[in-house]
């Protein structure tokens, strides 16, 4: 009896030892650092010996023009990237689901592939295309649209193009996974009952794909809001976004307190923006999002 109990105990210990690292790893390397960021954002000075006194100065500094401008610019960029991705993803996904039969899995493979390749390569591919002596400029000159090469690289347009290119798959996958499940008879019924294509789209397809769309919107919005690499490489030093400023605070200015405060403020902004989008969709289309959580 005692022996059995001891064995039982031992088994629990084994399960505990095997299972707990997954918790500890997340807790120590993600949740503790998050809390730590908060702590250093409200202390004056900190080093290995301890923290200084509590201050809100880092947060007051966020009310200055520069941080506000950078957060707004990032929001605008995120909205733009997300909207373009939605507009591009819908027709492709609809076309694949309705009109492509045998080739569909191959065409989906082609859409999945960019997600699996190092995204710096996509940035580089566009870097080559948009360069002063790159292919887009050469093409435009050959077509006679311009006479001198224009600087396409290091522009706002270049950032938007590369962002959309990089994040389009994030919009396409979730949308595809819900579009695929729509019963085609529903669309036929809608057409039979006299609805036009656009009526069918807005009354049938759109509500049925809303959950996938929202997943895509969150993925694209959050990643493009905090993007650092793309503006850094194809935007030159002219455009500054949230990701760049965070990097600047931590790696260049070595001002971790201000960096932490800025990181927290921008995270709250993006969280607020996303909750705002969700609240809007919930109120505009009650029922469509029932039971769907973030």
């Amino acid at each position: 009896m005692i022996e059995q109990e001891a064995k039982f105990c031992l088994r629990h210990v084994k399960a505990f030892v095997l299972g707990v690292p997954a918790f500890i790893w997340q807790f120590v390397f993600f949740y503790v650092p998050l809390f730590f960021l908060f702590i250093i954002s409200i202390t004056k000075s900190w080093n290995i010996l301890g923290f200084g006194s509590i201050t809100m100065a880092n947060y007051w500094a966020m009310l200055a023009w520069a941080p506000v401008k950078i957060i707004s610019a990032s929001l605008l960029m995120a909205v733009m990237t997300t909207s373009i991705c939605v507009v591009l993803a819908y027709p492709v996904v609809y076309f694949l689901c309705r009109y492509v039969g045998r080739l569909r899995s191959f065409m989906m493979f082609l859409l999945i592939l960019p997600f699996w390749t190092n995204f710096l390569l996509h940035v580089y591919a566009w870097f080559m295309m948009l360069e002063k002596h790159g292919l887009v400029n050469n093409l435009l000159i050959k077509l006679g649209l311009i006479s001198q090469p224009v600087s396409l690289l290091y522009s706002y347009l270049a950032i938007v193009i590369v962002m959309v290119h990089s994040y389009l798959p994030f919009m396409i996958f979730p949308l595809y996974s819900v579009m695929e499940k729509i019963d085609k008879q529903l669309l036929e019924a809608s057409a039979d009952l006299g609805a036009t294509f656009w009526q069918t789209f807005f009354r049938v397809i759109f509500p049925l794909t809303l959950s996938g769309l929202m997943t895509g919107v969150v993925l694209v919005f959050v990643t493009s809001f905090a993007e650092f690499v793309i503006p850094e490489l194809v935007g030159g030093d002219k455009f500054f976004f949230v990701g760049n400023l965070i990097t600047h605070y931590f790696l260049v200015a070595r001002n971790a307190s201000a960096g932490a405060a800025f990181t927290i403020v921008s995270s709250l902004v993006v969280l607020g923006a996303i909750s705002g989008i969700y609240a809007f969709v919930r109120s505009a289309m009650p029922g469509a999002m029932r039971g769907k959580k973030l």
Partner: peptide, 18 residues
């Protein structure tokens, strides 16, 4: 779902603090 940059700076500041 957290932006990767938040993960990165959090980890960096704890590691450099220690």
């Amino acid at each position: 779902v957290a932006p990767e940059i938040v993960l990165a700076v959090g980890l960096l500041s704890v590691l450099s603090y220690l």
